[in-house]
């Protein structure tokens, strides 16, 4: 299991580094929607993984029909956001006060959506054609353009959501509702609307993650779930509800998985990450960036 530490050439190093960043971005894209919903509502949205898969399949189908990846991606985001709206308004908003039911309910939704996908399209993985095929040369290495695209969009999403939370009225309302929803109400904030909007944004981010990563990871009914567990851990270590935290920790986990391969089999790297997460839950449950006043 232990390998010798090989000397890396600069091109190998660049490849590992970029792999780590793009892997981190994929985790971040999945985690971002989860952390928004979790941070505001305190809901562990298990259905998130299924929404990621729906985003992947939506992109695949619409792109196949129209020939445009981008049309597919945005169409899928719109449809999944709409589904998020329906789920939140119909049942989920009723169980925010009861986290156990919320968790169980979204878990049921996850099972149903994933099984519906598998029922309709089968379990085998399918490929989405990238809008940016081919490779670029970088520090002597060749690297798939689509992975660079993921990195760029990941950064853009991080900046966009960060700006939304810090500089907009909605961001302020989200903060206020997450901190103390009763106070927000007496300041005229419609907290139910804030919850709904946040859930819809979270669903849209899930679809974005699924559609965007489809060309490099392929789409399958269980695609979301495999990232969900890592995403949960990122949320814990980054600090529940801390957007900045999940971004930084996603990147760190991405690098650990990329360079960890040099020393250990990938599975053992994964095991190490899980153990680290369990230790964090026990001894530093607010992670690095969690805000104590928000998530008691």
């Amino acid at each position: 299991m232990m390998y010798h530490l090989p000397l890396l050439t600069s091109s190998e190093f660049a490849t590992y580094l970029l792999n780590g960043i793009s892997q981190g971005m994929i985790i971040f894209l999945v985690a971002s929607g989860l952390t928004l919903i979790f941070g505001l509502i305190g809901l562990i949205n298990f259905a998130h993984g299924a929404l990621v898969a729906l985003g992947g399949y939506g992109t695949l189908l619409i792109a196949d029909a129209t020939g445009s990846f981008w049309l597919g991606l945005f169409g899928a985001i719109a449809l999944v956001a709409l589904l998020g709206l329906v789920l939140e308004r119909s049942v989920l908003h009723r169980v925010y006060e009861r986290p156990l039911l919320g968790f169980l309910g979204t878990f049921g939704m996850y099972v149903v959506i994933e099984e519906l996908i598998s029922f309709q399209f089968g379990d085998q993985a399918r490929q989405i054609a990238s809008p940016l095929p081919g490779y670029v040369s970088f520090m002597g290495a060749t690297y798939p353009k689509h992975r660079l695209l993921i990195i760029a969009i990941g950064f853009a999403v991080a900046l966009g959501i960060g700006a939304l939370l810090s500089y907009t009225r909605l961001g302020m309302e989200i903060h206020a509702t997450a901190t103390e929803s009763e106070t927000a109400e007496i300041l005229g904030v419609d907290s139910a609307r804030v919850y709904t909007l946040t859930f819809v944004i979270g669903a849209a981010l899930a679809a974005l993650a699924g559609g965007l990563t489809g060309p490099v990871t392929s789409v399958s009914p269980g695609m979301g779930m495999s990232y969900m567990i890592l995403a949960f851990l990122v949320i814990i270590v980054g600090g529940m509800g801390s957007f900045k935290g999940s971004f930084l920790v996603s990147l760190i986990v991405g690098q650990i998985t990329a360079f960890g391969w040099l020393f250990l089999q990938p599975t053992y790297v994964r095991l190490g990450v899980f153990v680290a997460a369990m230790v964090f839950i026990l001894y530093k449950p607010r992670g690095f960036f969690g805000k104590p006043e928000v998530f008691e």
Binding site: M172, E185, I186, G188, S191, K291, E293
Partner: peptide
């Protein structure tokens, strides 16, 4: 009516324990 709808009818409520958001600035 829901609380926020009542507030939006130009009723303002200053609660007993102020309920200031500690992490937001005065302006925010």
């Amino acid at each position: 009516w829901e609380t926020h709808d009542i507030i939006r009818e130009k009723i303002a409520y200053v609660p007993e324990d102020r309920e200031i958001y500690p992490a937001l600035t005065v302006r925010e």
